[in-house]
């Protein structure tokens, strides 16, 4: 296990998780929480923040202890580290944002089983030093936060005609846009699949347009 920090561009590593390997829009991982909690903008944002926190802390921890981990037992150790940080997140959320926690608590616990977090620990953090590992975790986490924010923004606006914006830790301001008849299906689970599909297509379409135009300019 050699350090390859010098050859890794931190900015590229950060952007990799946001655009090239976006957990939801590109890898199509962790779709269960992304559909279950995104019918409300505030819940979506806090779920994204929780994942961002766990991802960064797990990457830092694994990177710090990578030299003492026995390769044969690395997966159980990754799982222990991840579940430790998820428990920390759970307790923090239960203490400071109890209203959000009561809605998304189940899915916070499920972060333990996120393929993307284990994959980053195995593929990146366990092979790199602390700073690149942190950048990678930040990138993946921000990409997830971005996806969840976009999905929940779209679903709440179309499905309920409102936006629940967190104004303090446990208070929210609800903006109402449509009072009469929004598209109710968008806040139901079926609409979650529709929204994720539509936004995934849009994300990839914009990406391919961007790639094309940058290829032309070179």
């Amino acid at each position: 296990m050699s350090d390859t920090a010098s050859s890794i561009n931190l900015k590229d590593q950060l952007l990799n998780g946001i655009i090239k390997e976006n957990t939801i829009f590109k890898l199509a991982l962790s779709l269960c929480p992304s559909i279950a909690v995104t019918n409300n903008l505030k819940n979506g944002i806090f779920m994204g923040l929780a994942v961002l926190f766990v991802q960064v802390m797990v990457n830092i921890t694994i990177s710090l202890i990578r030299k003492v981990i026995q390769p044969k037992v690395r997966l159980p150790i990754f799982m222990l580290v991840i579940s430790g940080w998820v428990t920390v997140t759970q307790l923090l959320m239960a203490a400071f944002v109890p209203d959000v926690y009561s809605k998304v608590g189940l899915y916070i616990a499920l972060i333990v089983a996120f393929a993307s977090i284990l994959a980053r620990a195995e593929m990146f953090a366990s092979k790199n030093s602390v700073v690149p590992a942190m950048a990678d975790g930040m990138g993946m986490g921000i990409g997830f936060l971005f996806a969840l924010t976009v999905i929940s923004f779209f679903r709440e606006l179309v499905g309920k005609g409102t936006l629940t914006v967190p104004t303090g830790l446990s208070t929210a301001h609800i903006f109402t846009f449509i009072n009469t008849k929004p598209v109710l299906i968008m806040v139901l689970p079926a609409g979650g699949f529709l929204a994720v599909g539509i936004l995934m297509a849009l994300f990839n379409w914009i990406n391919s347009r961007y790639a094309k135009s940058s290829a032309h300019s070179h």
Partner: peptide, 10 residues
């Protein structure tokens, strides 16, 4: 189906 679930009353 989309219309029925989205606007059940109408």
């Amino acid at each position: 189906a989309f219309a029925l679930i989205s606007w059940p009353k109408a």
